[in-house]
Structures are given as C-alpha cells and as structure tokens.
C-alpha cells in the first residue's frame, strides 16, 4: 500500500528526502560539543554531511530529541521529523507505505495541515527477488508455476529467461518476482518452494542479504 503527496503545487523539482534533511540540518548548525563524543551522533552527522557534500559537522537540531539510537530509529525519525516540520518548505513530494486501514486517517490529518494528497491506495510492486528453477521446468507446466505467483495479488513474475537442453534433460528458468513488500516476497518464495517439491524442481533462491 502506498501514498504520495505534494506540498507546494508548481514547484519544479522533486527534492530527495536526504537533501531536505541536510539543508535543514545545515541551517540549524548549532553547538555540537556535548554530542561530539557520542558515536551515534558522529555516525549520524557523518551520514548527513556525506549527503550534502559539506565537510563540517552539523547538528541535528530538533531531531536530537527523537530517540535516535539505532539505524532503525533513524528510519523512523527521518520521515517523522520531515512530516512534522520540514515538509512545508523543503520537500516537494515523497512516497510512504502504511497499513491500508490507516490511510484514511492519515489523509484527513494531512488535509487539515494544508497538504494535498495526490495519490493514495495504489499497490506497488516495490520488492524483487531472483530465483532459478532447475528440472523439467517446461514439462511440469511453467505457465501454472507462474500463475501460482501471479494469482496471489501481491506478487508477479516480471522477468523470465529459459535455458533448454535436449528432450528429457533438465532445463533451467530464471524468474524475477516482484511483490508489494518484503513479507510478500517471502510468501511468494514459500509458494515457489511448495511448487518445487510438488513438481520436483530444484528451487535456487538468493542468499538473504543480511549485510552482504
């Protein structure tokens, strides 16, 4: 589920989220000494400086008050702080995802703040995964294998490459599956695993990219 909105109609360009924060942070260039020894502070400030291309340390201003202690915290803090104050003068347009049942409430709140929502409720296939199938991929009804993914409503096979050898020899297929989110990718993969068992296909999944 996705939602995007626009703040200042007529603005010519889309401002990236990071550049919005950076310019804001730069403007707020306040004292940093009490935070300078903190590895978290250092880490964050470096991240922002890198985005802006500046070499000096910058302060996070009001973001400091948010519970930014981890990268996950940062992920929450950036859109939250943008939403709260920067939105009106820094960011032209960006997209967020949320549960379907929260969208109406958020739309109402945004409208009250003078923000117009330009598109809401559109499912987007934002995650993708590559899989290789080996075995009698065609003889075991490749169309059906693809349908099992496509009919889920949350995942689709977007790319398909086949490599065929002689009759009775195992063939191979490369599939790129797109889905609405990470959880949906996992669901699609587990469907494919089941299909693999059923049709005696070797399903070669990608390594989970924990940090590689």
């Amino acid at each position: 589920m996705s939602l995007s909105w626009r703040t200042r109609p007529g603005r010519p360009t889309t401002v990236a989220v990071t550049s919005g924060i950076t310019s804001r942070a730069r403007r707020m260039n306040a004292h940093t000494s009490s935070y300078a020894d903190s590895p978290y502070f250092d880490w964050h400030s470096r991240a922002y400086v890198a985005a802006s291309g500046a070499s000096d340390r910058v302060n996070l201003g009001s973001i400091q008050t948010l519970p930014i202690t981890t990268a996950a915290g940062l992920c929450i803090a950036i859109p939250a702080s943008l939403f709260h104050s920067y939105f009106t003068d820094q960011v032209d347009r960006f997209v967020v995802e949320m549960d379907r049942n929260k969208i109406d409430t958020v739309k109402e709140e945004l409208k009250k703040s003078g923000i117009s929502v330009v598109r809401a409720g559109e499912d987007r296939l934002i995650e993708s995964v590559s899989v290789v199938l080996v075995g009698h991929v065609l003889d075991s009804d490749l169309g059906d294998t693809i349908d099992r993914i496509d009919t889920t409503g949350y995942a689709e096979v977007m790319d398909l490459s086949l490599s065929m050898t002689g009759i009775n020899e195992p063939s191979s297929a490369y599939l790129k599956i797109r889905a609405t989110g990470k959880a949906e990718i996992q669901k699609a993969l587990s469907i494919l695993r089941e299909v693999g068992k059923e049709k005696q296909l070797l399903v070669i999944e990608p390594i989970e990219m924990e940090a590689i």
Partner: peptide
C-alpha cells in the same frame, strides 16, 4: 545451464550452509 543463466543475471550458484536457519542448499550469491 542453470549456472550460466544465473551468471548472466549477476549471480553465482554456491552450496551455502546457513546457521541458525539450519539449511544447506544451492543458493544464488551475487
């Protein structure tokens, strides 16, 4: 053929052991 297909798409196929998932399987590795 599977190895060549994977390679064209930017992957190697390796036998990967995973702990704590407790799996051993041929896996696409970038």
């Amino acid at each position: 053929e599977a190895l060549a297909l994977a390679q064209r798409k930017g992957y190697a196929i390796k036998l990967i052991g995973d702990v704590p998932a407790l799996t051993v399987r041929p896996t696409l590795v970038p």
